[in-house]
Design a protein around this nucleic acid. Sequence first.
DNA 1: AACAGAATGTAGCCGAGGCTACATATTCGA
DNA 2: TCGAATATGTAGCCTCGGCTACATTCTGTT
Lengths: 150, 150
Amino acid sequence: MSGLMIESPTHAALPAEPTQASRFGKARSAQSGALLEDYVELISDLLASGGEARPTDIARRLGVAHATAIKTIGRLKREGLAVAKPYRGVFLTEAGEQLAVRVRARHRLVVDLLLAVGVPVEAAESDAEGIEHHVSDVTLEAFARFLRRS
Amino acid sequence: MSGLMIESPTHAALPAEPTQASRFGKARSAQSGALLEDYVELISDLLASGGEARPTDIARRLGVAHATAIKTIGRLKREGLAVAKPYRGVFLTEAGEQLAVRVRARHRLVVDLLLAVGVPVEAAESDAEGIEHHVSDVTLEAFARFLRRS
DNA sequence: AACAGAATGTAGCCGAGGCTACATATTCGA
DNA sequence: TCGAATATGTAGCCTCGGCTACATTCTGTT
């Protein structure tokens, strides 16, 4: 986790002190990065396996319209995670690669943990996709320890 | 989970067949219900403990502006989960109560599982908030089994 | 070489969930 | 009781992540 957290565009100034009970908000804003993480992970996969990461492939794999993919790729570029020249496919920057590595490791860890506690493999894979974006480093370490102990 | 899933507003018709690799999209759309679930859970808590669920309280507890809370309460009403007369506080419908019960049970289960695998209590509580919305029934059952076995 | 079809990109729309600013209603204390 | 403080509600704006429709650029075949 601690690695995305690019700025925080829409956070002007909540007048009162955070009061304490803002554990909800955190989970919510983690969501912003989730999409970028998915894209980075997928692009990394595509580059690693096939070789090309074209917007159309990305869109299809993600189940969104290609326009949506292109728009998001634009965000990736803005965030310094990817580079792409028109018609030339998408590539990851150094930062993008690093993020991909972290995201992939986290994904595996989450899936492995789910399997370890007895979640069926399809559900584990499927749920991990949503869960992984909300797992803090602390929790991740706990997962790793648990798996080592098993 | 299986209980929200009210309609699905923005899903016209994806032309090609779901192709298979749309496990991403699912995690994403689960997100829509997440917010409503948080609200319902909180309103239920407030009603159960104190007695009143006022928009301002809800907003403060959730760390959002009151206008945001009111808007979301409007959605809750549209979805048939809550009722509210101006200045008279918010109450849950039967459906809302049922959802609250399910959400709370799921929350506890997720927290307990995290604790069981060795996640520190603060991280468990905090991460559960984000995780719980992505845990399928199948996975939930696996969690329950695991905890029983421990 | 030229053209059809596919890939890519652009423009503009939508809803959700945020926000601020302002308006109105309620409540409480002097 | 009445006026200030507080709570509630409305309006309008923003970004994000979707979409469709249309424009442009490649590319592969003939």
